[in-house]
Design a protein around this nucleic acid. Sequence first.
DNA 1: TATGACGTTTACGTTAACGTAAAGTTATAA
DNA 2: TTATAACTTTACGTTAACGTAAACGTCATA
Lengths: 129, 129
Amino acid sequence: MDQTYSIAELAREFDVTPRTIRYYEAEGMLAPDRKGQRRIYSPRDRVTLALILRGKRLGFSLAEAKEIIELYDAPQGEAGQLRVLIEKLASKRDALEAKRRDAESALASMDEYAARCRERLNELENTDR
Amino acid sequence: MDQTYSIAELAREFDVTPRTIRYYEAEGMLAPDRKGQRRIYSPRDRVTLALILRGKRLGFSLAEAKEIIELYDAPQGEAGQLRVLIEKLASKRDALEAKRRDAESALASMDEYAARCRERLNELENTDR
DNA sequence: TATGACGTTTACGTTAACGTAAAGTTATAA
DNA sequence: TTATAACTTTACGTTAACGTAAACGTCATA
């Protein structure tokens, strides 16, 4: 039998509030099962939530995150749909690549700066001896 | 003589509005010279703006971007300050690393998914022959 | 049976990050 | 000298992404 999660469990795991998770559902990004009125989350819901939050961390809006998620469960029925899907994937991939490059150049310049700082610190430490 | 920029020039170059640039100044992240009441931006101001916008693209808030920028022009006078600065740089570096890893794992799973889509498309194209 | 613990809906509140409009200033071109 | 283009300040408006509070349901356990 497949594992399930309560809203509080997911909230704890991902360090968000239940309100946040319900908000994503209201925005059409999650559709957990119900047991009575309670929400029951599947492992798949959990993956979706993780996708949303990773998107947010990378600076995507919820609307953009939603687009990406929708790509992941788009219908791959016929060839036409598949071609469109592949196109859209390539476009999102470009956006991601850009972010990775941004992160890499930021890291590079920061590392360079930190190296100069350490150098300067070394000089200071060897001067006062 | 060093180059300068008007607010509209920078706005055009970075694809933001003048309002946005003025807002960053009001938040204490920019301090352009004035010629009369007009703002005159230096190459250094331009770099700062680029830093802000890169931070935003990576999902940092303006407050976080400001912290990073302040590290870049922190006083490196004495050894104590330098040590604190180096510590803070390491912490920001970690945040950046995390974003890069997020971007990389997102790229990896997306590439994998796209590959499966292309495979499926290939099958469809060879079946109807 | 009552008392938490956990969940629910509804609805109004909040904040960051600007957008937008109004009214005035300043340099340049016709 | 007037017009227009680019700038300025002031101030109120807007939107995304939740926070927060109220009032209620339900299930286990003391």
